[in-house]
Write a protein that binds this DNA or RNA. Sequence first.
DNA 1: ATTGTAGTTGGCTTG
DNA 2: ACAAGCCAACTACAA
Length: 501
Amino acid sequence: MTKVASVIHWFRLDLRLHDNLALRNAINEAENRKQILRPIYVIDPDIKNRVGCNRLRFLFQSLKNLDTSLRKINTRLYVIKGKAIECLPKLFDEWHVKFLTLQVDIDADLVKQDEVIEEFCEANNIFVVKRMQHTVYDFNSVVKKNNGSIPLTYQKFLSLVSDVQVKDIIQISKGVSDECKASDYDSQGYDIPSLEEFGVNESELSECKYPGGESEGLKRLDVYMAKKQWVCNFEKPKSSPNSIEPSTTVLSPYISHGCLSAKLFYHKLKQVENGSKHTLPPVSLMGQLMWREFYYTAGSGTENFDKMVGNSVCTQIPWKKNDAHLKAWAEGKTGYPFVDAIMRQLKQEGWIHHLARHMVACFLTRGDLWISWEEGAKVFEDFLLDYDWSLNAGNWMWLSASAFFYKYYRVYSPVAFGKKTDKDGLYIRKYVPELKKYPSEFIYEPWKAPKGVQKTAGCIIGEGYPNRIVDHDKVHKDNIQKMNAAYKVNKEKKAMKRPRQ
DNA sequence: ATTGTAGTTGGCTTG
DNA sequence: ACAAGCCAACTACAA
């Protein structure tokens, strides 16, 4: 007996139905050939080692929403537990797969995995369709246009894409026919597993401020795009890193998981800006989206983009290991209330404002602790809902003045920076509650409060709240000198590599 | 080739 | 309250 062949769409960072060309290709292929359609998601049992609880919850919510939407068009999500390179070849054989569609992703781990799967597909006569749909622009053609090298400045990137026509949004117009349904459609073996199964106790997680899923992402997009004035006047540097409610859109987790198409965001922004006076990149909302495109272009075109060693764009800096300091930073126990508040918000809610990321990233690296940006990037990977491989590495290099940004002597002050937008430290009082009762005068520098004030406020520094792990005023000046020395070495190395006239 | 200019978003002191 | 000037002087890109 001959088995009916299957068509697979493999969901990864494209957890949506709208603007998903690869998914539509799979549906059409199955329909045209009367084959079985199986949209799959592969989840590695070890995922907990790389993905923190909050992001895992976001992912599972997104999968649930995806499955619900797929069922509305008469198919479903098949969730497979295991490592893709081990379980997919077996399944492809069992399901008699002839056609596979997926999205191009650039995360180094996914790229490696894809190579293995594609090799298997080629050897087994499985036709693979890969679609570039995670970004507005095709980053490969941007690099090509720049004569094969990546643009190292944002403005250069903008000039490269200025005349590129952005493609329209793809929609799935009709449901899947019964002929394309598998006989195991109702099998619970492919249902979305529980978070508990992956070692997450949901009741121990903090309140869910940003629920995952395409529906939530689209809703959030609509809410913000309806505020025409707000969109047209948006200037990122003028938004506040320490407002109690986010001063920006928080669309990033939806875009990073692919719940929301970057291209849809682009077209909606164009629509809102059209005919009105509006702010421009780099500070505008469109500018924010273009930053993402910029880092994707840089990340896709650079070997070892997420590392210092072997990374051609990254200045080599002799960072030092200090596990105690790293731990204090990650847990929000540095003794600098603004830094600690940010790190605690990050851990609790999975999202912090972009400028808050600047503050803590500068503090960990060139500003105060002199610890490698790679260590910080790992902590962000764990905690951020909107974690994204290229944006994370790119921004960490920026803030540590390892690439893209070079004014290393501009150091964020953990005392002064937050005061600009939150004089009374309401943000600190929320996320570092042990300092809640401190007078505003001392809320950014509690160690300066006289013992009596500390007592009255109910928190002695060094007991209820840690002493500062470093003296910023002193250490940041030393670090500027160290950066200066590292830059000099770097320059000499570059000069030696340059061919002599 | 050399040089001028621009570059998402600083901190601190002085007026 | 806010703006100007200083700090010490980076790199990429274009001309």
